[in-house]
Amino acid sequence: MTILEVEDITSGYGSMPVLHGLSLKIEKGQIVSLLGPNGAGKTTLLRTIFGILKPWKGIIYFDGKDIKDLPPEKITRIGMGYVPQEENIFPSLTVQENLEMGAFIREDNWSGRLEDIYEMFPDLTKRRKSRAGELSGGMRQMLAIGRALMLNPVLLLLDEPSTGIAPYLVDQIFEKIKALKGHGMTIFLVEQNTQALKCSDRSYILEGGEKKAEGNACDLLADEEIAKHYLGK
């Protein structure tokens, strides 16, 4: 079943379009990755899906509902989570407070969820009371993901979680992402790191705001032309 459907989206900043009529589909329970060079429009796409940018043209369906006019604070409430690439934590709040902010809109008791997150990222447990701004890059990334997980979203948008962190942590993060899929979460993973392809079910390749390729991740990896052009092999 399709959980997210983007159709013919044009979007950008000011009067400069970044995406030119982009379409893609995400099936429930899968990890779908989006790869492409810098400036391809990957972050713009995520920001448009999440309502931070308003698309100039096109449709966005989430779970069968048209969401293109919803602001981010509403989209959060219907089961979508978003981890931006940068500035994805509250630096002056403690680790625990960051996670609490993730649960801001939850009226029920979320202390169990908090413990789940700490269990998933045990390193964070020891730093509960530290200011998030004092954490290392890898820990920040885990905290950022943890914050978005507090609401247990149906669909999680991840913007380049592997950027700027130590290689051994990159593996760890991709492991966690796979584990989330195991819990039934759908993940839309934007990456430059080709490793992302290996853990995803389906992939899109974006360049210059246009879709250049799509398909089964293994097929894309096997395609020499694509590998040479877009994946830097």
């Binding site: 959060t76 500035e87 509250f90 002056s92 709040l93």
Partner: peptide, 17 residues
């Protein structure tokens, strides 16, 4: 805490609902 979050990172505060 939400006020402090907002002062810290207004974009992320919106994303958090």
């Amino acid at each position: 805490k939400a006020l402090r979050a907002l002062a810290d990172n207004p974009g992320l505060a919106r994303i958090s609902g």
